Computed example of a mutant assay.
Amino acid sequence: MKQISSRFSVAVHILSLIAVSPKECTGDFIADSVNTNPVIIRKIMGMLKKAGLVEVRPGVGGASLLKDPDQITLLDVYRAVDVIEDGQLFNFHDEPNQDCPVGRNIESALRSELRDAQSAMEQRLAQVTLDQLTVQFH
Rank of each mutant, 00 (worst) to 15 (best):
R57N: 14
L89M: 15
N37F: 09
E24F: 12
C100S: 13
S112R: 09
V83K: 12
T134M: 13
F92E: 15
S21W: 07
V34D: 03
F90W: 09
Q132L: 15
E122V: 05
L89A: 14
R115K: 14
F90H: 09
S21I: 07
I41K: 08
I40V: 13
G59T: 01
V60C: 09
K49F: 03
V34R: 01
V54M: 04
V77Y: 02
A120C: 12
K67N: 00
V20K: 10
E24T: 12
D76Q: 08
R7P: 10
D99K: 11
V81M: 10
N35I: 10
G87Q: 10
P69G: 08
V77D: 04
E107I: 14
A63Y: 00
R115E: 14
L65E: 04
M45S: 14
P38S: 04
S16Q: 02
I30F: 04
A51Y: 02
I4F: 11
E107R: 15
V77M: 02
E107Y: 06
G61C: 05
P58F: 05
L125S: 12
Q123A: 11
Q132T: 10
G62R: 05
G61N: 06
A19H: 00
P96V: 04
L15V: 08
K2Y: 11
L53H: 05
E122D: 13
L66E: 13
P38I: 05
R115S: 13
L17Q: 13
L133T: 07
L125G: 12
T36Q: 02
Q132K: 14
M121E: 06
L89I: 11
K23R: 04
V102N: 00
I14N: 05
R57C: 12
S64T: 13
P101G: 00
E122W: 05
M47Q: 07
D70C: 03
P96G: 07
G52V: 01
I30W: 03
T129Q: 01
Q3E: 15
Q123G: 06
K43S: 15
Y78T: 11
K67T: 00
I72L: 08
T26Q: 02
R115L: 12
D94L: 11
D94Y: 06
N35D: 14
C25T: 12
L110S: 13
P38H: 03
I41H: 10
F8G: 00
T134R: 11
I41S: 11
L65S: 05
D82G: 14
L133A: 03
I30H: 03
P69C: 10
F90P: 05
G27R: 03
I18A: 00
P69S: 14
E107T: 13
S9N: 02
V81N: 11
I44W: 01
R42H: 04
I72C: 08
S6P: 10
P101F: 00
A109G: 07
I106M: 15
G46N: 07
I106E: 07
V34Y: 01
Q98G: 04
Q88V: 07
D86L: 08
G59E: 00
R124C: 02
L114G: 08
V77E: 04
A126N: 03
G87F: 11
E113I: 09
R7V: 13
I14H: 08
G61D: 09
L110P: 05
Q127H: 09
Q136E: 10
N91S: 15
K67A: 00
